[in-house]
Design a protein around this nucleic acid. Structure first.
Length: 862
RNA sequence: GCGGGCGUGGCGGAACCGGCAGACGCGCUGGACUUAGGAUCCAGUGGGAGCAAAUCCCUUGGAGGUUCAAAUCCUCUCGCCCGCACCA
């Protein structure tokens, strides 16, 4: 059926032998009744074409260096088993692009797969007594079927499933690569623990102290865990954002904030009572060093216990530290939490002037940023000021604002702006920026400080105490320590699920046959790591696996990856602005450094699609405002749903679901259908001479070419699918109007045929099934989706007449129809010749006349 | 507090480089066809004055400004959304 890719109009097979049967509304032609004759019925045509497209391997895209490639990717879903509107939206957006670009001659890869490891599957398994892999397989089957009903043009031969051993084997391989490169390490640290999910979480996965998945309050726990050294890449992850021109600003800003680079100095204080101990702090304000009046340690700081050991303060201080540490993250970091602290009885020595200042422990200093200790400069820091006031600590001003009097004039504290340094020994009188630099240099000379850049970004904690994930491929041997599993022994397979319950211990630790093994180095008895990997590791490289999903010898084929990567257009929700998008960028950079991929960034363009709302609220079961894609497909067909979702709003904005709007889109498709149905009964016979091109014909032809131009630009350059669709609607309206205005025998049939052909082609990316059916119904061969995208003819855009607005003092006072390109002088003459304009100008003095060719003239008078 | 974004009819939204504000769709009003219609078609639809005319005035959150001309550029201001936030 699709063998012939030629796509030229064939002899319409039905011409001249068509009868319309009024009573049934069926077109009867030569004894056969085609789909087109039954009125628009998406339920018959949609499955039909979906089947054909799959049979013909339409969307299979092999590597072909002779053709321009385009890699369109939508974030692959977690297989929950239920497709929601957000999914439908992202797939619709991707599919329009994929179909459009194919028609424009690109070799388009458009794959789909499953981010299949993860907690919901495991929890569902515990609740329903099915194994997570069964549950996942079932969910995938359901969701895939729902996806396929949408008619999205995926190359299903490239499907990947992160929970299959064929895939996670390579996730483990990548872990080992990171390990070899010194980027994976184990350490004991206070980590975020979600009591509900029964696992630890990475910093990115905690939002305001709550678990990103279940919103439980996160606790701290000391645990030995695996981390990835993403902080080694902080600078590059930040810097390279600049080059991502086609990423939304807000996503880049969110990543910038998350990485949180600050420039300053590390300054090492000494402790008076323990000359051998040093107390480094990080500060962005080394210029205020002479204003330090106290020091503060985080309650978790390792020095705390040593400072107070054996002193009368010991109990008090340790109790205080313990109390603060028991507080939840939210309590402790909320803005209005009072700053509380306690003196340790010890003093720190300022490295430049030797001044001894008290060392305190306070809740407002956190261990995970900088060095876990800060120097207190109340005169020039809001927090320090607040704290100093409530504890009666001295305040010493060392920066004078520029507007304050030079000779000791008063100014308000705290002062956090720029100014001139005072009370700072040899540095007094310097502008503070310069002074900060000099102070740091001086500290460097004396080896008690240095320039330092600190990031807010933490290393990525990837251990998870759950079953349904890729096992971390490490073995612990009493003699050899942590030993990576040799590559040849990958994958480390999950044992078949039996007992998944776990209370602060990973389920895998209960499987003796899994745990007990031998050391790859010495052959002695050893135990396997029982934590699994964060599922975000699986999704950090899946876009590479799509380039060679079946490859058995390597995570991906270098040549194929070089051809397809980077992803030209990535589409997904804003909720991954930091999480997935940051991790995937990190992985890509590591692979780039290892010489395994040719590009240091995975996604050239990113589109963060807006959310789908209804009645002003996010769709949710509790609000009862959920509309499911299935429902829409059943009621109106996939084409209508797709069209509405694209028409209602530009892709990056939130979309308000509106049932009547859907109705409107359905109406439009029916209108298109009816037009095709009507016209094919009166198609031009082969060889019928080109019809007459009168004024009406030229106008509708101009609309045609203008529409092609607009739709092409709206899809290809601006992603304004909503305006592209409205342009096609206008074209359809214009065809209706043309046919209404002329008696059937006077209509230019070849022109109408051309118009319908174009409508079909322009609609193909949006309503692929209807377009395909219409294409065939109009008598064309091959698939509409394999036709070249129509070109427009600039010559046809030229109109016979343009309307020029006549303004007087900027107000519209008349209009005239003139030939395009009319001379300025002539236009002015014509305008002034109009009676009304003449009246308005009478007795006025013309000051100025502006002419915008073919658009407007403005006569300025007094 | 810092950063990003957004304010246009009854609603979703258009207006790309400063040049007719409100495309397209929804909704609404009136009409045609019809046994009927929630199908379809036709006409109208930002607000106000005016005779259902001609015509005029007002209108892009608000106030100023630049310009022959501002939804668009500038300043101030109000409101909303999102991200980050005792980050030293």
């Amino acid at each position: 059926m699709f063998a012939n890719k030629g796509g030229t109009a064939e002899n319409p097979p039905l011409a001249g032998r068509v009868f319309f049967c009024i009573s049934t509304g069926y077109l009867i032609s030569g004894g056969s009744v085609t789909e087109m004759t039954k009125g628009y019925n998406p339920h018959t045509i949609e499955p039909k074409w979906q089947r054909r497209w799959a049979e013909e391997r339409f969307y299979h895209a092999p590597v072909d260096p002779s053709r321009r490639k385009y890699y369109v990717l939508e974030m692959f879903p977690y297989p929950s088993g239920k497709l929601h509107m957000g999914h439908m939206r992202v797939y619709s957006i991707g599919d329009v692009l994929a179909r459009f670009l194919r028609m424009r001659g690109y070799n388009v890869m458009h794959p789909m797969g499953w981010d299949a490891f993860g907690l919901p599957a495991e929890n569902a398994a515990i609740d329903n007594r099915v194994s997570p892999d069964e549950w996942t397989a079932r969910s995938i089957a359901q969701m895939k079927q729902q996806q396929q009903r949408l008619g999205v043009s995926y190359d299903w031969e490239k499907e990947v499933n992160t929970s299959s051993p064929d895939y996670y084997r390579w996730t483990q391989w990548l872990f080992l690569l990171l390990y070899r490169r010194g980027l994976a390490y184990r350490k004991k640290a206070a980590v975020n623990w979600c009591p509900h999910c029964q696992t630890v979480l990475a910093n990115e996965q905690v939002e305001a102290g709550l678990c990103w998945r279940c919103e439980s309050e996160v606790e701290f726990q000391e645990r030995e865990q695996w981390f990835l050294r993403i902080t080694d890449y902080a600078e590059r992850l930040l810097e390279d954002l600049d080059a991502l021109e086609d990423w939304p600003e807000r996503v880049k800003v969110m990543q910038q904030n998350w990485i949180g680079r600050s420039e300053g100095a590390e300054i090492v204080f000494r402790i008076k009572e323990f000359p051998e101990e040093s107390l480094p702090v990080f500060t962005t304000r080394p210029d205020t060093l002479f204003g330090v009046t106290y020091m503060v340690l985080a309650p978790e700081h390792p020095l705390v216990s040593r400072l107070v050991a054996g002193t009368e303060k010991e109990k008090e201080v340790l109790d205080f530290a313990a109390r603060v540490r028991r507080e939840s993250e939210i309590e402790r970091t909320s803005e209005d939490a009072p700053k509380i602290g306690l003196f340790t009885g010890r003093y720190a020595l300022n490295p430049l002037n030797g001044a001894a200042v008290p060392i305190l422990v306070a809740n407002y200093v956190i261990m995970t940023y900088g060095t876990g200790a800060v120097m207190g400069v109340p005169a020039h820091d809001e927090r320090d000021y607040q704290f100093a006031r409530s504890y009666n600590l001295p305040v010493k001003a060392v920066i004078r604002p520029p507007e304050a009097e030079a000779d000791g004039g008063e100014f308000a504290l705290p002062y956090t702006g720029a100014g001139t340094m005072i009370n700072s020994d040899g540095f007094s009188g310097l502008p503070n920026l310069e002074g900060g630099k000099r102070i740091t240099e001086k500290l460097q000379e004396r080896q008690c400080g240095r320039f330092k850049i600190t990031y807010r970004l933490r290393d990525w904690l990837i251990s998870r105490q759950r079953y349904w994930g890729a096992p971390i491929p490490v073995i612990y041997c009493d003699r050899c320590g942590a030993v990576p599993v040799p590559e040849a022994e990958l994958p480390v397979l999950l044992p078949p699920a039996a007992d998944l319950s776990g209370d602060r211990v990973p389920p895998l630790s209960r499987y003796d046959s899994f745990v007990n093994t031998s050391c790859p180095e010495c052959g002695g008895k050893a135990r396997r790591e029982t934590d699994t990997m964060d599922t975000f590791m699986c999704s950090s490289w899946y876009f590479l696996r799509f380039t060679s999903p079946q490859l058995q010898s390597f995570p991906f084929d270098r040549e194929k990856a070089d051809y397809w990567m980077p992803v030209d257009q990535y589409i997904g929700g804003i909720e991954h602005a930091v999480l997935h998008l940051l991790y995937a960028r990190f992985f890509t950079k590591v692979l780039y450094d290892a010489g395994l991929v040719g590009s240091a960034e995975p996604f050239s363009r990113l589109l963060a699609q807006g959310m789908v709302y209804k009645d002003g609220a996010k769709m949710s079961k509790s609000k009862g405002n959920v509309v499911s894609p299935d429902e829409i497909v059943e009621r109106y067909g996939a084409d209508t749903g797709r069209l509405f979702i694209l028409f209602a709003s530009p892709p990056e904005k939130d979309l308000d679901w509106n049932d009547q709007g859907v109705e409107g889109c359905h109406r439009f498709l029916r209108r298109v259908w009816r037009l095709v149905e009507e016209c094919r009964g009166e198609q031009a016979a082969a060889g019928e001479p080109a019809g007459k091109m009168g004024k009406k014909e030229r106008e509708v032809q101009r609309v045609l070419h203008a529409t092609i131009k607009k739709v092409t630009e709206d899809i290809g350059e601006r992603f304004n699918f909503n305006t592209a669709i409205s342009a096609v609607m206008e074209l359809v309206n214009a065809v209706y109007e043309y046919r209404r205005e002329l008696a059937p025998e006077k209509q230019n049939r070849p022109l109408v045929q051309e118009l319908l052909r174009a409508v079909t082609l322009l609609l193909a990316p949006f309503a692929p099934h209807l377009a395909e059916e219409a294409w065939h119904s109009l008598g064309y061969r091959g698939s509409v989706h394999q036709q070249p995208w129509p070109d427009y003819d600039s010559a046809a855009l030229v109109v016979g007449e343009v309307e020029v607005v006549i303004q007087i003092n900027g107000k519209v006072r008349g209009r005239m129809r003139v030939p395009p390109g009319s001379a300025e002088e002539w236009l002015l003459e014509e305008a002034r010749a109009q009676q009304r304009i003449g009246e308005l100008l009478a007795g006025k003095k013309v000051l100025r006349q502006i002419v915008v060719p073919d658009k407007l003239i403005n006569i300025v008078v007094r």
